[in-house]
Write a protein that binds this DNA or RNA. Structure first.
Length: 529
RNA sequence: CGGAGUGUGGCUCAGUCUGGUAGAGCACCGCGUUCGGGACGCGGGGGUCGCAGGUUCGAAUCCUGCCACUCCGACCA
């Protein structure tokens, strides 16, 4: 496949049109504009931390609800561990500490005192052992596992928690990378490597299915190369999504931790022959970053487009109220419509409908819902009420700066058709993103020179304006250690990274694109977030 | 922590070089005309010009120091 002639509509529009972004025109500016205009989140007074607004949090709640069902279906129970982790817990696993040491928030005091007119940590209230605000919970959950697991009959142990974590990142971006973020983290312990690995892959597959079915974001599941592994993990797997600027976003990760965490924390079980064995553990997580991926996958120049499965409100009814007597009739008509819609099931759940009665011009209300990405926006006026009609637009129809495309339908037909319409919107958004992904993975390059030519050199300051290039999929010899480092450095000059080795691999391979040595697997290469 | 840049109403910015006491568009509020497709007119609210010193009769503007943010690098769900 040659470089696709996919038109990068969004990127082009972001560069030429500026309905949302004012004078600015890069993809990041467009992204920020959508986060703001769609009322998803805003920067908080705390550096690198965001305030998630009701509409944005509503999307997160939908993610939680739909994923939680899948997590439970895997036989995983929810629980909750403390926000604070004793510093000493991290010292036990060397690689793990090293990986997170540079981004830990540390609590050292438990009281403030007015000293010289300034509130300061009270020197007399210093903690003997500092507490870490969790960057992830392997250590404290491992500690519990070491007490909970005694026998092979306790295995497998599978738990999950929905929580906030803190990683003191140098650079932050709303949803994509914030100092504090919300996530779920699954942790499992098993008797054998096979069982733990199976669990790791089961979580990965759950993420893939979730991303595609719920978020309508197509992804490629695969194994991360050695240099991209989670600190302390034996194997790390990920799902990678392609954003509308062609960059990759790691949307979820699943790790097989081997026995290293078990050894560090003494997680052992007694087998049926009476012998003590170390557990094999896994952990896996997805975060509010998914929302960033959702925005960068489905957004357009009018704002966000939400897949119905995650839209907090799937059908928003905007009554055309004009401060006149017939308003009452329109309102009643709208209320009855919402009530009937809520009786319907779409994508396996009751339809989430809303009658927007806010005291605001109906044109403004409609466009606000367009910006927020409500899948179906219904407009009800006196004419509809009188004629038993419904006028509505599908958010997925509104593209490329087209005018709103309204459709009319009889009220009862609309109520019956709504589930199908929502399912269709869900599918359309997925298909669009899938076509973009498929069309922009180049797989006919055989040398690094070709890769270099394909992506082109990017000067630092031009990165955001660099052309859409998608990803390259190529054979490689899966080097490790210094040889891998050489490859990483080679890619770095082009701002490229190894994304993952997709799960579906061919039976034979060409020569390694980096060294010419015999290839052993195919790897995805691209720019990333 | 290194390199570059920017701090002026909610947003995007002008004004800074050449000091004279703060502006525009959008957003917001009121009234009117409109209102089945992101309306228009008139009126209005909102800013200690990042902070602290200094120079000056006078500082958004000049000087010094600090802080914050953005982008690049290192880090990363």
């Amino acid at each position: 496949m040659a470089v696709s002639d996919f038109k990068q509509p969004l990127m082009q529009r972001a560069l030429s049109v500026s309905r949302l972004t004012g004078n600015k025109s890069t993809f990041p500016d467009w992204y920020q504009a959508i986060v703001r205009e769609a009322d998803m989140a805003e920067l908080s007074p705390v550096r690198g931390s965001m305030i998630i607004k009701p509409w944005g949090y509503g999307v997160w709640e939908r993610i939680q609800q739909t994923m939680d069902r899948r997590i439970k279906a895997m036989g995983v129970d929810n629980c909750y561990f403390p926000l604070f982790i004793p510093l000493g817990f991290f010292a036990k696993e060397a690689e793990h500490v090293e990986g997170f040491a540079k981004e830990m928030a540390v609590v050292t005091h438990h009281r403030l005192k007015l000293i010289d007119g300034k509130l300061q940590p009270d020197p007399d209230a210093k903690l003997d052992e500092p507490l870490i605000v969790r960057p992830t919970s392997e250590t404290i959950i491992g500690d519990a596992f070491s007490r909970w697991i005694k026998s092979h009959r306790d295995l497998p142990m599978k738990i999950n928690q929905w929580a906030n974590v803190v990683r003191w990142e140098m650079r932050t971006r709303l949803f994509l990378r914030t100092s504090e973020f919300l996530w779920q983290e699954g942790h499992t312990a098993h008797a054998s490597r096979e069982d733990a690995l199976k669990s790791t892959l089961e979580a990965l597959e759950m993420y893939r299915e979730f991303s595609e079915a719920v978020l309508a974001v197509p992804v490629i599941a695969g194994e991360k190369p050695e240099n991209e592994r989670f600190p302390g993990a034996d194997n790390t797997f990920s799902i990678e999504a392609m954003m509308q600027d062609g960059k990759a976003l790691q949307a979820g990760t699943s790790h097989y931790l081997g026995t290293s965490f078990a050894r560090a924390q003494n997680i052992r079980y007694q087998g049926d022959a009476g012998e003590l064995e170390f557990c094999h553990t896994s952990s896996w997580g997805t975060s509010t970053r998914l929302i960033g991926g959702l925005i960068m996958t489905h957004g357009d120049d009018d704002g966000l487009r939400l897949p119905p499965a995650v839209a907090p409100r799937q059908v928003v009814v905007v009554p055309m109220l004009r401060g006149k007597p017939e308003d009452a009739e329109v309102l009643a008509y709208g209320q009855a419509l919402v009530k009937d819609l809520e009786q319907q099931f779409a994508l396996g759940e009751p339809i989430r409908a809303l009658l927007d009665v806010k005291d605001q011009k109906s044109a403004d209300k409609r466009w606000n819902w367009v910006r927020r990405g409500a899948p179906i926006i219904v407009e009800l006026g006196p004419r509809d009420a009188a004629g038993g009609q419904v006028t509505f637009m599908r958010r997925d129809d509104l593209r490329d700066g087209d005018r709103v495309k309204n459709q009319a339908m009889s009220r009862d037909d609309f109520v019956t058709a709504a589930p199908g319409l929502l399912a269709s919107i869900q599918q359309t958004l997925f298909d669009e993103a899938k076509a973009r992904l498929d069309a922009n993975i180049v797989s006919d390059l055989t040398t690094f020179d070709q890769v270099a030519e394909h992506f082109g050199q990017v000067a630092d300051e031009d990165e955001e304006a660099s052309p859409f290039r998608g990803w390259v999929r190529a054979s490689w010899s899966r080097p490790s250690g210094d040889d891998l480092e050489a490859v990483v450095q080679k890619l770095k000059a082009f701002k490229l990274t190894l994304r993952n080795a997709p799960m579906d691999q061919p039976v034979s391979f060409g020569p390694c694109i980096f060294t010419g040595a015999p290839g052993v697997e195919e790897i995805l290469i691209g720019r990333s977030y």
